[in-house]
């Protein structure tokens, strides 16, 4: 098999490639942020006139809360009642599975094609 000789990349080309890569990387992090889709926050469930008992805290817990600087139940109520929402739609789950499996499938397929070339050139046909 003919040996593949890679072209030498000029300075400008090198700089452009780095910039392209950077734009894609920063985009991946910031686009979800800008679109406001990122992250999951806890939803506090407001309670009227909270007491340590109504928040389900036993004496040992109350003692530790006080040591941490939460002197009464009201100050800790928001922390204690906040919960994550773990509900999700099956469609979203399926989309995620397809995306992940598809991604690895593309990777393995293209890699295999390139790998055969590498081995053929390295070890000869």
């Amino acid at each position: 098999m003919a040996k593949y000789v890679a072209p030498v990349q000029g300075k400008v080309g090198q700089i452009i490639d780095v910039i392209v890569l950077l734009i894609m990387a920063i985009g991946a992090l910031y686009i979800p942020l800008w679109m406001g889709l990122a992250g999951s926050s806890k939803d506090p469930q407001p309670v009227e006139n909270p007491t340590w008992e109504s928040l389900g805290q036993n004496p040992a817990m109350v003692e530790q809360w006080e040591k941490l600087g939460y002197s009464d139940a009201a100050s800790a109520a928001e922390l204690i009642t906040a919960r994550f929402d773990y509900s999700f739609s099956i469609t979203a789950l399926i989309v995620m599975i397809v995306v992940i499996v598809g991604y690895y499938a593309i990777l393995l397929r293209f890699s295999e094609k390139e790998y055969r070339e590498v081995i053929a050139e390295k070890f000869g046909e």
Binding site: A28, I31, P32, A38, G39, S40, F88, M96, V99, Y103
Partner: peptide, 16 residues
């Protein structure tokens, strides 16, 4: 996925 599904998809889109 339970907490950060959007990032997960954005990230994999980036890698694709």
């Amino acid at each position: 996925f339970l907490g950060y599904g959007t990032q997960l998809v954005a990230m994999i889109a980036f890698y694709i």
